[in-house]
Design a protein around this nucleic acid. Structure first.
Length: 516
DNA sequence: CTAGGGTTAG
């Protein structure tokens, strides 16, 4: 074109941006500035989409400066994409600032800020904001519901999830696949696979994400057979093609469900090119996990040596977990030191190596690891467990003194401990890293947040109802054992969702088969 | 003629 105006420039930027060519979009934007053509609100809204994520937030901030200078910050489209850019770059406070400064709000800007919190895992904040904006009369559409469902999945808040589902049904929205997908995910992460499957079966059209969400659900619940069956069913649907996430779900489902041979045969077909998806490092990671789970620690180690990628922390981490479960100190030691090189600040690795030494009675080595950990000043995200009782969410952290019924809860944990010891429970003191005597260690163990939540559940629930506890980290070995004994002695079902998967514990047996 | 928010992973 010999002549261009703001519309031609913006159309080009938008075209690149919508197709994912973020750098090209930015490039055209810069050339536009050089040409002297002033951007308008359309240009800014468009170019900011390309500043989110990959290009980082440096470009985004510079564009923000321009927006302020040209007085477009309060424009509703510009403001929405601006706050979205900040949220996607992890700057949620800046995003909130832009949102609060908007003179007018609409569905999109409200959804963008709620989704921003949810995508960063700030689930409580997302839910709280959704409620507040609803009170203030915000409109909701299917994208809003999808974003709220993401937050509810994270919180494992089944009742809220059902409420949103009801609202969706009542509002007579057309059935958006994206919304249905997030319903499947919500129900599965809230522990109700039956409802997930009901939504799945009711869909007339499915995308690869639909299938993946359902497969991941079965996988997280340790139902390997269902994962493989559904995968075979998926292959009959000629409308969808399994992608790399599908295979991760299937392989990790085989691993968690103990289907070693099935896992390998699917993996071999991937290598032979029969599946149309070549194995990436994540798939090798699943196989290391699968071998490790089966107790084949050395085979897992050999696989790592053979893979055509540089091993990642996820690969080593998976093997380290297997070493802990199968008490392999020699391999574990080597693996832990690989991890110390790659991610020295990750406390979990020090903890596991220390556990390994403790279970082998190598106290001096254990002390050294602890010293090393102090030296590197690693910090752990504080463990937190929560349980819902009479529609109220009760949250506990270790040694919680803040709960109104703390004394009652602490007494109950002690009572449980005494009762289940009679049935054979032995506290696993290797789970404690502090350098104190055994009596003190046991006290620390009894203060773990998941035990507090379980005890609280027992106080408040009538015998027949299952206890549903959620945890933000992986459950510790001692607490897992504790829960198994409690379920047996008190004849109660305990469902525990940790950061990794579900544990359905009935009669002293867990659905994870003690591997997680 | 040009514009903003959304779902699946280990």
């Amino acid at each position: 074109m010999r002549e261009r105006n703001v519309v031609s420039w913006t159309a080009m930027i938008s075209a690149y941006s919508q197709r994912g060519y973020t750098f090209d979009a930015l490039d055209v934007f810069i050339n536009m500035l050089k040409s002297g053509e002033p951007p308008n609100e359309f240009t800014f809204a468009s170019v900011l989409t390309s500043c989110a994520g990959v290009c980082g937030f440096d470009h985004g901030r510079q564009v923000h400066c321009l927006i302020i200078k040209t007085n477009f910050e309060s424009h509703i489209y510009v403001g929405s994409s601006l706050l979205d850019m900040y949220a996607k770059s992890g700057r949620i406070h800046e995003a909130r600032g832009v949102f609060e400064r908007l003179p007018k709000r609409d569905v999109v800007s409200c959804t963008a800020i709620i989704a921003g919190y949810a995508q960063l895992g700030l689930d409580e904040e997302a839910l709280e904001l959704f409620r507040q904006l609803m009170r203030e009369g915000m409109e909701s559409n299917y994208v809003t519901y999808t974003s709220v469902l993401t937050a509810l999945s994270g919180l494992a808040a089944l009742d809220h999830g059902k409420q949103v589902h009801n609202r969706v049904l009542r509002s007579q929205l057309p059935s958006y696949i994206v919304l249905q997908n997030s319903l499947i995910d919500m129900y599965s992460k809230c522990g109700n696979l039956t409802y997930s499957r009901r939504v799945f079966d009711g869909m007339s059209e499915r995308t690869v994400i639909t299938w993946n969400a359902m497969l991941v659900g079965y996988s997280k619940h340790g139902l390997g057979r269902e994962v493989v069956d559904l995968f075979q069913f998926m292959r009959k649907d000629k409308e969808v093609k399994p992608d790399n996430i599908t295979f991760m779900a299937v392989l990790s489902g085989c691993s968690h469900g103990g289907l070693i041979d099935e896992g390998f045969s699917i993996f071999d077909e991937m290598i032979n090119g029969k599946e149309g998806v070549k194995p990436e490092i994540e798939h090798y990671c699943c196989m290391v996990d699968l071998l490790g789970r089966a107790g084949k620690v050395h085979e897992a180690f050999d696989l790592i040596k053979k893979i055509p990628f540089e091993p990642t922390s996820a690969i080593w981490g998976s093997l380290l977990g297997a070493c802990r479960v199968h008490n392999n100190v020699t391999v574990g030691e080597f693996v832990a030191h690989q991890l110390f090189k790659i991610e020295p600040q990750n406390a979990g690795n020090y903890v596991i190596l220390s556990n390994l030494y403790a279970s082998a009675g190598r106290w001096e080595d254990m002390t050294n690891v602890r010293e090393l950990m102090k030296e590197k000043a690693v910090t752990k995200e504080p463990g937190r467990s929560w349980i819902k009782l009479d529609r109220i969410l009760h949250s506990f952290h270790a040694d919680d003194r803040s709960h109104p019924r703390k004394d009652e809860v602490v007494r109950k944990v002690r009572e449980l401990s005494v009762k289940i010891k009679e049935a054979g429970y032995v506290p696993d003191l290797s789970c404690v890293l502090h350098d104190v005597d055994d009596e003190q260690k046991e006290k620390i163990l009894l203060g773990h947040s998941e035990k507090l939540a379980i005890a609280f559940g027992l106080i408040g629930t009538s015998q027949a109802l299952p206890i549903r506890v959620m945890k933000n980290l992986r459950i510790c070995i001692d607490c897992h054992n504790f829960a198994k004994f409690v379920s047996k002695v008190y004849e109660i079902e305990i469902s525990l969702r940790d950061s990794n998967r579900f544990h359905h514990i009935i009669g002293g047996i867990c659905s994870c088969a003690d591997y997680w």
